[in-house]
Nucleic acid binder design. Structure first.
Length: 450
DNA sequence: TTTTGAGTTGTTCGA
DNA sequence: GTCGAACAACTCAAA
């Protein structure tokens, strides 16, 4: 039997963990997590706190043997492997731009000392890059990808190893105290993830297809933060789904997550840059007045109730309903003409589920710069979206107290109230019809510039 | 090989 | 009030 290191990253669980199974099969295991400043900085306080809580749950499941070390993984991982006398470091492979570079560097450093990094599995049911078109090139459109992804298939979940021997007594820097966070976060860790899955499957799933688009109903899975840190693996969800309409709907949402990871793997710089090169020339607003509008957007005081409700939900829960994410993103890009990447950065800093692939490609989809050769004319009207998806106005009133006394759907157009705008609620910062026309003009200019 | 039709999530306008 | 058409350009798979 030989000692190995299991380096946890986005896989904070023991069940359905192929890399852990491989490590345990080899002998005693050193469970490691590295506090990497390059990742913790951009994560922001919300995800850092959620991560730390997930680590505490993991440490408990490991009988307190999780080794936590702070520093650059290129230094930390080889040093710990040497300390433990481990020839192999097992990981679930990382397919993101930073993770790939980091793992190459760590693998090189380990090799220099006669050791190796072994990647098994990934945070996805199907590894990014594994689904290709007939001609061997990657998909750029979801539906054909999804058909091929389903046809490809995935293995069933594997149980947690029952007889793991954790190496004890190695120095751990410990899990730091949570940074202070104003938002109300979900419970962290595997048990919370499993409980949420069971709760969802026991009832809400039946209405998922019909109600997932209704922010007031709050009928979505709320599993995204757990998927982000691997407290649950998508295989564990997929294994529970059948052929009914709502089950198929949830499977396709997981398919979107896999699709965007695949796109990002094939084009790593699409995290920051527009996937459609022609769209990169779009005229954008910047400077002090754009900064002021951006600030109004972040603070939920644009004067458009659904937009403001969404941005305040982001502050309050570090999470926003998917339908509302699209509405607020469309508003920033099409009404305020601000770079989608700036909005994506703001989301990534404040979302508890903030995932580079899903977040940034979701933004690109709204901006019309990404996959789904996006119709330039798809510009969300915040009022229409409110009437359509929050018909009773419950979602808006939940997050915008200034409008709490306005009954029904009238809450979406407070400027039309007979008594005038309720006290404390801001005037609209732009004229939607005018800005919609402006967005269309800029698109037309882009075309004529060739 | 070329053609054809469809593609997550929309809005407006005019009948 | 509802309904269909129009709003481009590109991707992909099937015909």
């Amino acid at each position: 039997m030989t000692t190995t290191v299991l380096w946890f990253r986005r896989d904070l669980r023991l069940a359905d963990h192929p890399a852990l199974v491989a490590a345990v099969a080899a002998g005693p295991v050193v469970p490691l997590f590295v506090l990497d400043p390059a990742l913790l900085g951009p994560a922001g306080p919300v995800r850092t706190a959620f991560l730390y809580r997930g680590l505490r749950a993991l440490d408990q499941a490991l009988d307190g043997n999780l080794v936590v070390r702070a520093g650059d993984p290129v230094d930390v991982v080889p040093a710990l492997a040497a300390e433990a006398g481990a020839d192999t470091v097992h990981v679930s492979a990382d397919f993101g731009p930073y993770g790939r570079r980091r793992d190459q560097d760590v693998a090189r450093a380990l090799r220099a000392a006669g050791r190796r990094l072994t990647g098994i599995g990934s945070p996805y049911a199907v590894d990014p890059g594994a689904v290709l078109k007939q001609d061997g090139t990657p998909f750029r459109v979801f539906s054909p990808f999804y058909r091929a992804w389903r046809a490809q298939g995935w293995p069933p979940p594997c149980p947690a190893p029952g007889h793991a021997a954790w190496v004890e007594g190695l120095r751990s820097d410990g899990i730091p105290e949570d940074p202070s966070v104003d938002a109300t976060l979900p419970m962290a860790g595997v048990a919370a993830a499993q409980a949420r899955l069971e709760e969802f499957l026991a009832g809400p799933i039946d209405d998922y297809a019909d109600r997932r688009d209704s922010p007031a109903a709050d009928a979505t899975t709320r599993l995204s933060p757990y998927l982000k840190y691997g407290c649950i693996h998508p295989r564990q969800i997929l294994a529970r789904l059948g052929q009914s309409k709502p089950h198929e709907k949830l499977r396709s949402e997981l398919g979107w997550r896999e699709f965007y990871a695949d796109v990002l793997w094939h084009t790593p710089d699409s995290a920051r840059r527009s996937l459609q090169p022609t769209m990169a020339g779009m005229e954008l607003d910047a400077g002090p007045s754009a900064d002021e509008r951006f600030r109004a957007w972040t603070e939920g005081r644009t004067g458009f109730p659904l937009v403001d409700a969404g941005m305040r939900q982001l502050r309050g829960e570090a999470w926003v309903h998917n339908r509302v994410r699209m509405v607020v993103a469309s508003f920033l890009v099409k009404d305020l003409h601000i770079d989608w990447a700036r909005g994506a950065r703001w989301f990534l800093r404040h979302l508890v589920d903030g995932d580079l692939a899903s977040n940034n490609h979701g933004w690109q989809w709204v901006a019309g710069t990404g996959t789904d050769p996006a119709p330039y004319f798809r510009i969300f009207n915040p009022v229409t979206q409110g009437r359509e998806h929050d018909p009773d106005g419950d979602y808006v009133r939940r997050w915008v107290p200034e409008l709490a006394e306005v009954a029904g759907r009238a809450v979406h157009e407070p400027w039309k109230l007979p008594g005038g705008l309720p006290a404390g609620y801001p005037q609209r910062i732009v004229d939607h019809a005018a800005e919609r026309a402006e967005a269309l003009d800029r698109y037309a200019a882009l075309k004529s510039d060739g």
